[in-house]
Nucleic acid binder design. Structure first.
Length: 309
RNA sequence: GGCGAGAUAGCUCAGCCGGUAGAGCAGAGGCCUGAAAAGCCUUGUGUCCCCAGUUCGAUUCUGGGUCUUGCCA
């Protein structure tokens, strides 16, 4: 089993600082499990590691897609698996760090084997919604894949469309694909969660947004829009970006946009915390005020079990 | 000062031709199998601005206040 260090936590909890410290002390690389830092040009609002950090520690999966390119858990699992094996071959313990819980869970628990589904299939489904109701689509899913239909809310357009596109393209229900899931690559993971008390986290989120603004977030968004990317592209459809579009179009004040961006970041952090409650961690720390040597000791206990056992 | 408009949940507002009220957002809790910074679910007792009148009954009608707001001066 390949040993890995995983650092998770809600937005603004201080994951990156811990990851940097650990990667340096292990002499290893950081694998970013973050669905937004993958995009070029979106630096300030995604709190990407800066140049200095990236010179000190090699970061993977940061800054390599255009803002209109799709990315997903499957792509992450595939690519991350390769990097992890490569590092392991060099005798390094990778530091996986990020707030996209689904990516990390998928990496650890595996995904079902599915071919990439062409975007047209989804576009067609969405087009059908012009003349058919969501309820009808849900019913169609119920006919071909009752197991999935039973688990998906009849209001959950995103998941109904997903289950249907899988069925239409592969002619096999999504639920069946899951039954035939391959055993996941297994890692010996040391999982750390940084979970600051809510009040503290919320105030850190608020001040981080203020900081981003003074670092030039607005200019960054303007520049990306000028390159021709749209607010609907996956990159800009992110908390801390989408809220400022109405302001840039003169429909809202900066103050209102800022308030919304903060609010949505807090909502996001809350959802992350709910997700983490279902995950198990080897170590949960309450603040970014961590003790490196304690962590290193626990880490080596877990990753290098003593021969005495 | 004149003529209007408004005052209802933390916020923005809907509603009641008279029978004590409801959405969105926020907040709280939860879900989550290739869009996950996404998507979805659950959760709403508040002097319906104040006073008086009409009425079996007023948040709803009438009168008078108070405050806010628009236009004109």
């Amino acid at each position: 089993m390949i040993p890995v260090l995983i650092i998770e936590g809600p937005t603004a909890s201080g994951k990156s600082a811990l990851a940097m410290a650990m990667a340096e002390s292990l002499g290893s690389h950081i694998i970013s499990a973050d669905s937004r830092q993958v995009y070029k040009y979106l630096d300030i609002g995604t709190a990407k590691p800066d140049q200095t950090d990236r010179e000190r520690v090699k970061h993977h999966f940061v800054d390599f897609l255009e803002p209109n390119q799709a990315y997903n858990a499957g792509a992450f699992v595939q690519a991350a698996g390769e990097i992890i094996s490569g590092l392991h071959y060099q005798g390094l313990v990778p530091v996986i760090c990020g707030g996209t819980g689904l990516y990390i869970r998928s990496l650890l628990e595996g995904l079902c084997k599915l071919p990439p589904i062409p975007a047209v299939v989804r576009e067609e489904l969405i087009g059908e919604l012009g003349s058919r109701s969501l309820a009808e689509l849900h019913e169609e899913l119920n006919q071909v894949d009752p197991v999935s239909a039973g688990k998906i809310s009849s209001n959950d357009k995103q998941r109904i469309v997903r289950a249907l596109e899988v069925y239409r393209y592969t002619a096999k229900p999504l639920s069946q694909h899951w039954q035939e899931q391959n055993p996941p690559q297994s890692y010996r993971a040391f999982r750390i969660l940084i979970a600051p008390p809510r009040e503290l986290l919320y105030s850190r989120i608020d001040s981080r947004l203020d900081q981003m603004l003074s670092q030039g977030l607005i200019e960054e968004i303007k520049a990306v829009l000028q390159m021709g990317y749209s607010a609907h592209d996956p990159g800009l459809n992110s908390v801390g970006y989408k809220e400022f579009i109405p302001f840039l179009q003169g429909e809202q004040s900066l103050g209102e946009a800022l308030l919304l961006a903060k609010q949505h970041s807090r909502n996001y952090a809350k959802r992350q915390m709910t997700w983490y409650r279902k995950q198990t961690f080897d170590l949960t720390i309450l603040s970014s005020d961590f003790n490196l040597s304690d962590i290193n000791r626990l880490l080596s206990d877990k990753l290098n079990p003593s021969e005495g056992l």
